[in-house]
Nucleic acid binder design. Sequence first.
DNA 1: CAAGATACCTCATCTGTCAAGGTATATTAT
DNA 2: ATAATATACCTTGACAGATGAGGTATCTTG
Lengths: 117, 117
Amino acid sequence: MSIASDILRGHTEGIILARLHQKDSYGYEINKAIQKITNHTYELKEATLYTAFRRLEENGCITSYWGNETTGARRRYYSITDTGKETLKSLQTDWLQTKTLLDRLMEENPEKETPED
Amino acid sequence: MSIASDILRGHTEGIILARLHQKDSYGYEINKAIQKITNHTYELKEATLYTAFRRLEENGCITSYWGNETTGARRRYYSITDTGKETLKSLQTDWLQTKTLLDRLMEENPEKETPED
DNA sequence: CAAGATACCTCATCTGTCAAGGTATATTAT
DNA sequence: ATAATATACCTTGACAGATGAGGTATCTTG
Protein backbone atom coordinates (compact mmCIF):
# COMPACT_ATOMS: atom_id res chain seq x y z
CA MET A 1 0.00 0.00 0.00
CA SER A 2 1.32 3.42 -0.90
CA ILE A 3 -0.29 5.38 1.91
CA ALA A 4 0.87 4.74 5.41
CA SER A 5 -1.90 3.95 7.84
CA ASP A 6 -0.88 6.77 10.15
CA ILE A 7 -1.63 9.24 7.40
CA LEU A 8 -5.15 7.95 6.92
CA ARG A 9 -5.75 7.61 10.64
CA GLY A 10 -8.47 9.93 11.69
CA HIS A 11 -9.96 10.08 8.21
CA THR A 12 -11.62 6.70 8.43
CA GLU A 13 -14.86 8.05 9.78
CA GLY A 14 -15.06 10.78 7.19
CA ILE A 15 -14.46 8.30 4.41
CA ILE A 16 -17.20 6.02 5.65
CA LEU A 17 -19.67 8.85 6.21
CA ALA A 18 -19.04 10.17 2.71
CA ARG A 19 -19.97 6.77 1.31
CA LEU A 20 -23.10 6.52 3.43
CA HIS A 21 -24.15 10.00 2.47
CA GLN A 22 -24.62 8.73 -1.06
CA LYS A 23 -26.62 5.66 -0.10
CA ASP A 24 -27.16 3.09 2.59
CA SER A 25 -24.53 0.42 2.31
CA TYR A 26 -22.81 -2.42 4.15
CA GLY A 27 -19.23 -3.12 5.17
CA TYR A 28 -18.13 -5.30 2.34
CA GLU A 29 -19.59 -3.03 -0.30
CA ILE A 30 -18.13 0.11 1.23
CA ASN A 31 -14.70 -1.45 1.27
CA LYS A 32 -14.99 -2.43 -2.39
CA ALA A 33 -16.15 1.07 -3.24
CA ILE A 34 -13.14 2.60 -1.53
CA GLN A 35 -10.80 0.29 -3.38
CA LYS A 36 -12.40 1.28 -6.63
CA ILE A 37 -12.32 5.01 -5.92
CA THR A 38 -8.63 4.82 -5.11
CA ASN A 39 -7.81 2.50 -8.00
CA HIS A 40 -6.79 -0.13 -5.49
CA THR A 41 -4.08 1.98 -3.93
CA TYR A 42 -5.88 1.94 -0.63
CA GLU A 43 -8.23 -0.29 1.29
CA LEU A 44 -9.67 -0.14 4.76
CA LYS A 45 -8.72 -3.21 6.73
CA GLU A 46 -11.76 -5.10 7.88
CA ALA A 47 -10.98 -4.68 11.55
CA THR A 48 -10.56 -0.96 11.03
CA LEU A 49 -13.82 -0.76 9.18
CA TYR A 50 -15.89 -2.57 11.75
CA THR A 51 -14.42 -0.77 14.74
CA ALA A 52 -15.20 2.49 12.95
CA PHE A 53 -18.79 1.37 12.44
CA ARG A 54 -19.11 0.71 16.16
CA ARG A 55 -17.68 4.11 16.97
CA LEU A 56 -19.94 5.90 14.52
CA GLU A 57 -23.00 4.11 15.79
CA GLU A 58 -22.10 4.96 19.40
CA ASN A 59 -21.70 8.59 18.38
CA GLY A 60 -25.10 8.57 16.74
CA CYS A 61 -23.65 9.25 13.30
CA ILE A 62 -25.08 6.11 11.76
CA THR A 63 -27.75 3.53 12.41
CA SER A 64 -27.80 -0.07 11.26
CA TYR A 65 -30.30 -2.68 10.22
CA TRP A 66 -30.13 -6.18 8.84
CA GLY A 67 -30.88 -6.54 5.16
CA ASN A 68 -33.57 -9.00 4.18
CA GLU A 69 -31.50 -11.05 1.76
CA THR A 70 -33.15 -14.37 1.06
CA THR A 71 -29.93 -15.72 -0.38
CA GLY A 72 -26.22 -15.29 0.27
CA ALA A 73 -24.57 -14.06 3.43
CA ARG A 74 -26.53 -11.67 5.59
CA ARG A 75 -25.68 -7.99 5.36
CA ARG A 76 -25.76 -5.34 8.00
CA TYR A 77 -26.73 -2.09 6.34
CA TYR A 78 -25.71 1.28 7.68
CA SER A 79 -27.56 4.55 7.29
CA ILE A 80 -26.25 8.04 7.96
CA THR A 81 -28.18 10.12 10.50
CA ASP A 82 -28.63 13.90 10.61
CA THR A 83 -25.89 14.01 13.21
CA GLY A 84 -23.74 12.02 10.83
CA LYS A 85 -24.39 14.47 8.03
CA GLU A 86 -23.35 17.37 10.23
CA THR A 87 -20.28 15.48 11.32
CA LEU A 88 -19.39 14.79 7.71
CA LYS A 89 -19.74 18.44 6.78
CA SER A 90 -17.56 19.36 9.71
CA LEU A 91 -14.94 16.78 8.75
CA GLN A 92 -14.93 18.05 5.18
CA THR A 93 -14.33 21.59 6.39
CA ASP A 94 -11.57 20.35 8.67
CA TRP A 95 -10.00 18.58 5.73
CA LEU A 96 -9.86 21.80 3.73
CA GLN A 97 -8.11 23.54 6.59
CA THR A 98 -5.77 20.65 7.19
CA LYS A 99 -4.72 20.72 3.56
CA THR A 100 -3.84 24.40 3.66
CA LEU A 101 -1.95 24.04 6.90
CA LEU A 102 -0.08 20.92 5.94
CA ASP A 103 0.80 22.35 2.56
CA ARG A 104 2.58 25.11 4.37
CA LEU A 105 4.12 22.90 7.02
CA MET A 106 5.54 20.45 4.50
CA GLU A 107 7.20 23.20 2.51
CA GLU A 108 10.84 23.88 3.22
CA ASN A 109 10.34 27.61 3.21
CA PRO A 110 6.80 28.71 4.07
CA GLU A 111 6.19 32.42 3.75
CA LYS A 112 5.15 34.16 6.92
CA GLU A 113 1.62 35.45 7.19
CA THR A 114 1.99 38.09 9.85
CA PRO A 115 5.54 39.49 10.04
CA GLU A 116 4.97 40.83 13.53
CA ASP A 117 4.53 38.19 16.16
CA MET B 1 -6.93 23.23 18.92
CA SER B 2 -8.76 23.04 15.64
CA ILE B 3 -6.97 20.06 14.16
CA ALA B 4 -7.39 16.73 15.86
CA SER B 5 -4.16 14.97 16.64
CA ASP B 6 -5.21 11.89 14.72
CA ILE B 7 -5.27 13.95 11.55
CA LEU B 8 -1.75 15.18 12.04
CA ARG B 9 -0.48 11.79 13.12
CA GLY B 10 2.08 10.55 10.71
CA HIS B 11 2.88 14.02 9.45
CA THR B 12 5.02 14.97 12.41
CA GLU B 13 8.24 13.70 10.88
CA GLY B 14 7.62 15.45 7.60
CA ILE B 15 6.90 18.70 9.39
CA ILE B 16 10.11 18.49 11.38
CA LEU B 17 12.21 17.48 8.39
CA ALA B 18 10.82 20.39 6.37
CA ARG B 19 11.97 22.77 9.11
CA LEU B 20 15.41 21.22 9.32
CA HIS B 21 15.80 21.32 5.57
CA GLN B 22 15.85 25.09 5.83
CA LYS B 23 18.39 25.26 8.64
CA ASP B 24 19.72 23.45 11.67
CA SER B 25 17.46 24.09 14.60
CA TYR B 26 16.48 22.90 18.04
CA GLY B 27 13.27 21.67 19.61
CA TYR B 28 12.02 24.83 21.18
CA GLU B 29 12.69 26.91 18.09
CA ILE B 30 11.08 24.39 15.76
CA ASN B 31 7.96 24.35 17.86
CA LYS B 32 7.74 28.14 17.85
CA ALA B 33 8.25 28.14 14.08
CA ILE B 34 5.39 25.69 13.61
CA GLN B 35 3.11 27.80 15.76
CA LYS B 36 3.99 30.85 13.73
CA ILE B 37 3.51 29.14 10.38
CA THR B 38 0.07 27.95 11.42
CA ASN B 39 -0.89 31.24 13.06
CA HIS B 40 -1.09 29.42 16.37
CA THR B 41 -3.80 27.03 15.23
CA TYR B 42 -1.49 24.10 15.75
CA GLU B 43 1.45 23.17 17.91
CA LEU B 44 3.42 20.03 18.37
CA LYS B 45 3.28 18.90 21.95
CA GLU B 46 6.71 18.68 23.49
CA ALA B 47 6.52 14.97 24.18
CA THR B 48 5.49 14.35 20.58
CA LEU B 49 8.31 16.51 19.32
CA TYR B 50 11.03 14.84 21.31
CA THR B 51 9.86 11.29 20.60
CA ALA B 52 9.85 12.21 16.92
CA PHE B 53 13.43 13.46 17.21
CA ARG B 54 14.49 10.13 18.70
CA ARG B 55 12.74 8.26 15.90
CA LEU B 56 14.28 10.39 13.19
CA GLU B 57 17.73 10.05 14.67
CA GLU B 58 17.35 6.26 14.91
CA ASN B 59 16.29 6.20 11.27
CA GLY B 60 19.32 8.21 10.27
CA CYS B 61 17.23 11.12 9.03
CA ILE B 62 18.79 13.62 11.41
CA THR B 63 21.88 14.03 13.56
CA SER B 64 22.21 16.12 16.70
CA TYR B 65 24.84 18.13 18.49
CA TRP B 66 24.93 20.40 21.51
CA GLY B 67 25.09 24.10 20.80
CA ASN B 68 27.90 26.06 22.45
CA GLU B 69 25.76 28.65 24.17
CA THR B 70 27.69 30.46 26.84
CA THR B 71 24.49 31.81 28.32
CA GLY B 72 20.93 30.58 28.71
CA ALA B 73 19.71 27.01 28.67
CA ARG B 74 21.66 24.53 26.57
CA ARG B 75 20.26 23.64 23.17
CA ARG B 76 20.43 20.39 21.27
CA TYR B 77 20.62 21.23 17.59
CA TYR B 78 19.40 18.89 14.89
CA SER B 79 20.70 18.61 11.36
CA ILE B 80 19.03 16.88 8.43
CA THR B 81 21.06 14.13 6.71
CA ASP B 82 21.01 13.05 3.07
CA THR B 83 18.75 10.19 4.09
CA GLY B 84 16.53 12.73 5.78
CA LYS B 85 16.36 14.83 2.64
CA GLU B 86 15.32 11.82 0.60
CA THR B 87 12.75 10.90 3.21
CA LEU B 88 11.37 14.42 3.15
CA LYS B 89 11.09 14.38 -0.62
CA SER B 90 9.30 11.06 -0.41
CA LEU B 91 6.93 12.33 2.28
CA GLN B 92 6.15 15.41 0.21
CA THR B 93 5.29 13.23 -2.78
CA ASP B 94 3.15 11.02 -0.56
CA TRP B 95 1.37 14.09 0.69
CA LEU B 96 0.46 15.14 -2.84
CA GLN B 97 -1.00 11.72 -3.50
CA THR B 98 -2.79 11.61 -0.19
CA LYS B 99 -4.44 14.92 -0.94
CA THR B 100 -5.77 13.71 -4.28
CA LEU B 101 -6.99 10.47 -2.84
CA LEU B 102 -8.57 11.95 0.25
CA ASP B 103 -10.21 14.69 -1.79
CA ARG B 104 -11.99 11.97 -3.68
CA LEU B 105 -12.74 9.81 -0.66
CA MET B 106 -14.23 12.67 1.30
CA GLU B 107 -16.57 13.62 -1.51
CA GLU B 108 -20.08 12.27 -1.35
CA ASN B 109 -20.09 11.32 -4.98
CA PRO B 110 -16.64 10.73 -6.43
CA GLU B 111 -16.56 10.17 -10.17
CA LYS B 112 -15.14 6.85 -11.22
CA GLU B 113 -11.81 6.81 -13.00
CA THR B 114 -12.01 3.52 -14.83
CA PRO B 115 -15.60 2.48 -15.49
CA GLU B 116 -14.58 -1.12 -16.08
CA ASP B 117 -13.29 -2.85 -13.01
C1' DC C 1 -16.45 -31.61 -2.09
C1' DA C 2 -12.74 -28.38 -2.10
C1' DA C 3 -11.81 -23.63 -3.17
C1' DG C 4 -12.98 -19.07 -3.38
C1' DA C 5 -16.06 -15.22 -3.03
C1' DT C 6 -19.29 -12.98 -0.13
C1' DA C 7 -20.20 -11.18 4.47
C1' DC C 8 -19.90 -10.69 9.24
C1' DC C 9 -17.28 -10.43 13.87
C1' DT C 10 -13.65 -10.21 18.05
C1' DC C 11 -9.36 -9.94 20.50
C1' DA C 12 -4.58 -8.88 21.41
C1' DT C 13 -0.96 -6.12 19.94
C1' DC C 14 1.43 -2.20 18.08
C1' DT C 15 2.47 2.66 17.53
C1' DG C 16 2.24 7.67 17.79
C1' DT C 17 0.27 11.28 20.66
C1' DC C 18 0.06 13.62 24.86
C1' DA C 19 -0.83 14.84 29.87
C1' DA C 20 1.81 15.14 33.67
C1' DG C 21 5.64 15.20 35.79
C1' DG C 22 10.66 16.53 36.20
C1' DT C 23 15.45 19.45 35.65
C1' DA C 24 18.15 23.76 34.86
C1' DT C 25 19.31 28.66 33.52
C1' DA C 26 18.30 33.59 32.59
C1' DT C 27 15.34 37.58 32.84
C1' DT C 28 11.88 40.55 34.77
C1' DA C 29 8.80 42.09 38.34
C1' DT C 30 7.76 42.77 43.18
C1' DA D 1 16.08 38.88 47.76
C1' DT D 2 12.62 36.18 45.60
C1' DA D 3 8.75 35.01 42.91
C1' DA D 4 7.24 34.54 38.33
C1' DT D 5 7.99 33.84 33.58
C1' DA D 6 10.47 32.43 29.49
C1' DT D 7 13.76 29.49 27.60
C1' DA D 8 15.23 24.72 26.94
C1' DC D 9 15.61 19.96 27.71
C1' DC D 10 13.77 15.18 29.13
C1' DT D 11 10.88 10.72 30.65
C1' DT D 12 6.97 7.94 31.92
C1' DG D 13 2.46 5.95 31.66
C1' DA D 14 -1.95 6.04 29.63
C1' DC D 15 -4.84 6.22 25.68
C1' DA D 16 -6.96 5.45 21.14
C1' DG D 17 -7.14 3.97 16.44
C1' DA D 18 -5.29 0.59 13.11
C1' DT D 19 -4.35 -4.02 12.22
C1' DG D 20 -2.93 -9.10 12.13
C1' DA D 21 -4.81 -13.19 13.12
C1' DG D 22 -8.21 -15.69 14.18
C1' DG D 23 -13.18 -17.10 13.90
C1' DT D 24 -18.30 -18.06 11.78
C1' DA D 25 -21.64 -18.80 7.94
C1' DT D 26 -23.54 -18.90 3.12
C1' DC D 27 -23.33 -19.43 -1.82
C1' DT D 28 -21.04 -20.51 -6.32
C1' DT D 29 -17.86 -22.81 -9.27
C1' DG D 30 -14.69 -26.32 -10.71
